[in-house]
Design a protein around this nucleic acid. Structure first.
Lengths: 182, 182
DNA sequence: CATAATATGTAACACTTGTTATCGTATCTT
DNA sequence: AAGATACGATAACAAGTGTTACATATTATG
C-alpha cells in the first residue's frame, strides 16, 4: 500500500549528531543535515515536527555517546570518583562540542546525573567506595570533588587547561587526598 | 563643512552590550542593535567594518563590566583568592550571559588573567597574601583553587549550583583550608 | 547665506534559515 | 498485475541575516 521508508529517524539523528560533534548545535540546519544524510530536507520534517525536536534527539544521542565513553574508559584509579572524573575530563578534551552541548550549553536540560546513566547508579557505587575507604561524609566529598572536576573539564573545553592524562591523574589524586584528610 | 555625528561608537557598543547581557552574543544583529540605539543600521556600518568587529567591542565592554564588578565587590575574606573567587561566582550568578561570553564562550579570546585586569596584578597580590600566611606553593594553591572556583561559577551559570553567598563563602574557606594544610 | 562634505534613514541586494506545497515514484495490499 | 498511498526530491515561500546604494538631512566653512 505504501512506499517503504529509506531514510530512518536514526539516520537523520546520526547525521545531525555528526555535524554537532564538529560544529556544535548551531551547525545543525535542515540543509546541512540533509546533505550529511544524502537526502532532501523532506524526510527530516516527516520525522520531526521541527528542527528543535531534532535537536532534542541529538542531545539524547550525545548523552548516549558520553555514557558509552564512560563505560569504555579504563578504571585504573582506586580513589573514589577519580575514574569518573578522569573520563569526564577526557571527554571534554576529545569531544569539546558534545561536552558543551551536554554540560554547559544554553539548552542543557539534564543534570549531570541524568546524563550519566538515566540514574545515579554509578555515583552510588563511587560513594560506597569512599565509605569503604573511611570517608565520613562521602556525598560532601563528591560535591567538592565534582565541582573541581567540572572546573577542570570546562577549562579543558575552552583550552585553558592542558595537562597530560598522567598529570591530571596525579592532580586528582592530590585533590582527593586533601579532601579526604579533612 | 560636515554633519555632526549623533550616534557615537560608544552608544552602539552600549546598545549591543545591553542586548548581550540578556540574550547573549547571538542576540546581537544589526537591526536589533539599531533598534536598541534608536537609529538605523547605517551608523553601525559606518563605525565598524562588520558585525564581528562590533562583537569584539562588546567583548571588551563585557571585560570592563567584570573588572568593575570585581573592583566594587566587598573584600571580607582573609583567605587568599577567596575574595576573587566569591566575586567571580557572584558575577556568574548575576550576569550569566556575560559570564558565558567572557569565560566559556566559543569566541573567548582572553584568558582569565587578561580579562581580570589586562595584567596579573590582582592575582599577584593574592599570591603574596598566601605566602604571608605560610603557604609554601602559592601558585600551586592558586591553580587548584581556581579550577574549583571556575567549576562552581560554571555550575552557577547553568543553574546546577545554587548555594547562598554565605554557604559559598564557607565552602571556599573549607576548600582553601584543605589545600593549604597539605 | 550658499556650498561642500559627511551622517543618517530608506530601501534594496544577496544569502541563509525553517517550513511547506507539489508532484513523480516506489512498494504493499489486493 | 493494478491501484492506493506514503515517501522523497524539487522548488517555492516567508522571515531574518549582513551589507550596500542612494537619497536626504545637517552642519562647518567660504
Amino acid at each position: 500500500m505504501a512506499r517503504k521508508e529509506s531514510i530512518t529517524k536514526q539516520m537523520i539523528i546520526d547525521a545531525a549528531y555528526n555535524i554537532a560533534r564538529t560544529e556544535g548545535m548551531q551547525g545543525i540546519t535542515a540543509r546541512n543535515v540533509a546533505e550529511q544524510a544524502n537526502c532532501s530536507t523532506q524526510p527530516i520534517f516527516r520525522t520531526f515536527q521541527n528542527m528543535e525536536e531534532l535537536m532534542d534527539g541529538v542531545y539524547e544521542r550525545a548523552a548516549l555517546a558520553f555514557q558509552e565513553f564512560y563505560r569504555m574508559y579504563p578504571r585504573t584509579e582506586k580513589f573514589p570518583f577519580c575514574n569518573l572524573g578522569l573520563a569526564y575530563i577526557a571527554f571534554a578534551k576529545e569531544e569539546k562540542e558534545l561536552f558543551r552541548i551536554l554540560f554547559v550549553g544554553e539548552k542543557k536540560k539534564k543534570s549531570f546525573y541524568e546524563v550519566l546513566n538515566g540514574n545515579t547508579e554509578n555515583v552510588r557505587t563511587e560513594i560506597q567506595i569512599a565509605t569503604a575507604q573511611g570517608c565520613k561524609n562521602p556525598s560532601g566529598l563528591f560535591m567538592k570533588l565534582w565541582i573541581f572536576i567540572h572546573g577542570a573539564a570546562c577549562m579543558t573545553m575552552t583550552g585553558d587547561y592542558d595537562l597530560s592524562d598522567e598529570e591530571t591523574k596525579e592532580l586528582l589524586q592530590n585533590i582527593c587526598r586533601s579532601f579526604m584528610s579533612v
